[in-house]
């Protein structure tokens, strides 16, 4: 039975949920995301409480520009879509295509992260808006930084899965791992949509 877990042929329709371990991982990860939701809700709450407390530093509307952030949003949303493709191919048992789409996802993820680092660099050097500048700056960098940290972790996770399984196909053992990594990626994407709205749009407009 144990060896069956590593076989790549004759996979069932939903390989990620075909074994008890897979079902446990699948469900456990959904609950974990529930906890993550509370984590980000707390960060959003704090940000909302402090976003109008720039002390001596610059305010939200002074520093935010929507162009770059809009591009970042598109990039991250697209990466979510490509990870859906990857999971589609996983269910079809097409390992190569899954790897390809995961690769594209990772590339988009890095693009996003690069933009974010550039954005932070720009704030720090262009506006003297550092982490310790004001309560607003601390709340901003912590919220967006936590998200960025999640992106970085997600990238490391997907990459190590891709490398580990490069030489073998999809099987009942690794399918749940790929699947929950992609779930995680979607979650990061959803959080970003809220960041885009609450931090950038509301910061620029209201």
């Amino acid at each position: 039975m144990a060896d069956d877990m590593l076989k790549s042929d004759n996979l069932p329709q939903n390989p990620e949920r075909a074994s008890l371990e897979g079902r446990n991982k699948f469900m456990g990860f959904w609950f974990f995301l529930g906890g993550e939701t509370v984590l980000f809700a707390s960060l959003f709450g704090t940000y909302l409480a402090l976003r109008n407390s720039p002390a001596e530093g610059p305010t939200a509307s002074e520093i935010f520009g929507l162009e770059l952030v809009f591009i970042m949003t598109i990039v991250l949303l697209t990466s979510s879509l490509t990870s859906v493709y990857a999971m589609y191919h996983m269910k079809n048992g097409d390992f190569k295509k899954m790897q390809l789409w995961l690769g594209i996802t990772v590339a988009l993820g890095f693009t996003f992260l690069g933009f974010e680092i550039y954005e932070f660099y720009h704030y720090v050097h262009g506006y003297h808006f550092g982490y310790t500048t004001s309560a607003f700056s601390s709340a901003f960098y912590t919220l967006v930084g936590f998200h960025g940290g999640h992106v970085a972790f997600g990238l490391a996770w997907i990459i190590s899965l891709m490398i580990r399984n490069a030489k073998r196909g999809i099987n009942l053992y690794n399918a749940p791992k790929f699947y929950i990594a992609s779930l995680y990626w979607h979650f990061i994407d959803v959080v970003w949509v809220f960041i885009f709205t609450v931090v950038y749009l509301m910061g620029k407009v209201g």
Partner: peptide, 14 residues
């Protein structure tokens, strides 16, 4: 440890 200002009223914290 890192000089953030979440709770420091002097820097706008609460």
């Amino acid at each position: 440890l890192f000089g953030a200002n979440f709770f420091d009223p002097a820097m706008g914290g609460n």
